[in-house]
Amino acid sequence: MKKLINDPQNVVAESVEGFVAAHADLVIASDNPEELFVSRAGGAVQGKVGLVSGGGSGHEPLHAGFVGVGMLDAAVPGPVFTSPTPDPILAATKAADGGAGVLHIVKNYTGDVLNFETAAELADAEGINVRAVVTDDDVAVQDSLYTAGRRGVAGTVLVEKIAGAAAERGDDLDTVAEIATRVNAGARSMGVALTACTVPHAGKPSFDLGEDEIEIGIGIHGEPGRRRIPLAGADEITDLLLGPIVEDLAVTSGDQVLLFVNGMGGTPSSELYIVYRHARAQLEAKGVTVARSLVGNYITSLEMQGASITVLRLDDELTALYDAPVHTPALRWGV
């Protein structure tokens, strides 16, 4: 294992320390290292719905990279690929509360769901109104070792962006939750792994792939996909990812969509744009308008080589909210 780390047990703490130092104008870290979370510099915005997300580390820039104006108010990084416990989630919820309630955006993994539920109950007992939206956009599998139902993957970024814009414009908690639910319902994703990733404290790859093999439908923690196949060209791989998305979402001629090609951490942007090129051409051949695009490493799996495709069906309101200004360490436009 070759990684730029010191002690594997200190990876998350040292990474967060460097992250907040680099972006001190946007984010701060909690004072208590036992309840580690990242929140907006300047504290909660009074009268605005707070947005909190989190989960296991190793998916950076998700979630801390999306803390800031127009997206999250706080993010809770757990150990690598392991859910944070309820205590830091509760602390982050308190920090994000501006008096208008807090929305939890939770990827559909058993530990995340249970721990966020517990934190929400504790917050409710302290008088904070909490709602939760669970993201489950992965069409690759219905169940895995980590989830009951579909996994929450790259569509989570779009939920955070669009719901964050709704909160920023002053929508109430019910409305922000409804918009987040609508985004999740209109998004589908599927990924591919070309290589495995190595969790620092494990010291070896999380699964085995032959040099000429790829895994179609992989999860962001290295969970098994739909099938393992010989390495193929980018266009063929793109078709294997996009086909199930289009079928499941029932995208038809005349639809307007956002096309999001996400890197898993170890794939250069040049390759992501090759995937985007073919995915866009295939959608346009079906009469679908690609109205918005996002390409880059936004929800990763450590150093895994691979990519995912997400398609989100848009309407006028969701498009306007996606276009709304955002200023975070990992996503910025309009400001």
Results as ranks from 00 to 15, higher is better:
Val67Lys: 00
Arg227Cys: 13
Gly219Val: 07
Val183Asp: 02
Pro268Leu: 01
Val133Ala: 02
Ala165Cys: 05
Ala180Met: 00
Leu314Cys: 06
Tyr109Leu: 09
Ser15Leu: 15
Ala21His: 13
Arg150Ser: 07
Gly65Thr: 00
Leu158Thr: 06
Thr289Ala: 10
Ser253Asn: 09
Ala91Cys: 12
Pro200Lys: 09
Gly217Lys: 08
Met190Val: 05
Asp171Lys: 11
Gly54Glu: 02
Arg169Lys: 15
Arg228Pro: 03
Asp171Gln: 14
His63Asp: 09
Arg169Leu: 12
Asp316Arg: 09
Asp255Leu: 00
Thr267Met: 07
Ala167His: 08
Ile218Pro: 05
Asp143His: 14
Asp31Thr: 11
Ala285Thr: 07
Phe66Ala: 02
Ser83Asp: 09
Gly65Lys: 02
Leu145Gly: 14
Phe207Asn: 13
Leu294Met: 11
Trp333Phe: 01
Val176Gln: 06
Asp239Phe: 07
Ala29Trp: 06
Val69Trp: 00
Leu321Phe: 04
Gly222Thr: 14
Ala324Tyr: 12
Gly54Leu: 04
Gln46His: 10
Thr110Arg: 01
Glu17Ala: 15
Val261Asn: 06
Glu213Cys: 06
Glu215Asp: 14
Asn6Cys: 00
Val246Glu: 12
Ala250Phe: 05
Leu294Lys: 03
Leu26Lys: 15
Asp87Tyr: 12
Ala132Val: 08
Asp315Tyr: 02
Val133Cys: 09
Thr93Cys: 11
Ala165Leu: 06
Ala21Asp: 14
Ala185Met: 01
Val326Arg: 06
Leu145Gln: 10
Gly203Arg: 02
Glu317Trp: 11
Val133Ile: 15
Pro84Phe: 07
Pro79Arg: 12
Ala91Ile: 06
Asp174Lys: 08
Val27Leu: 05
Asp315Asn: 12
Gln46Tyr: 04
Asn32Phe: 04
Asp208Cys: 00
Leu249Glu: 04
Asp323Leu: 08
Phe81Pro: 11
Arg313Lys: 15
Asp239Val: 13
Ala148Tyr: 11
Ala13Gly: 07
Ile179Met: 04
Glu303Cys: 04
Pro268Met: 03
Ala187Val: 13
Leu158Lys: 00
Gly266Cys: 07
Ile28Lys: 12
Ile162Leu: 02
Asp138Ala: 12
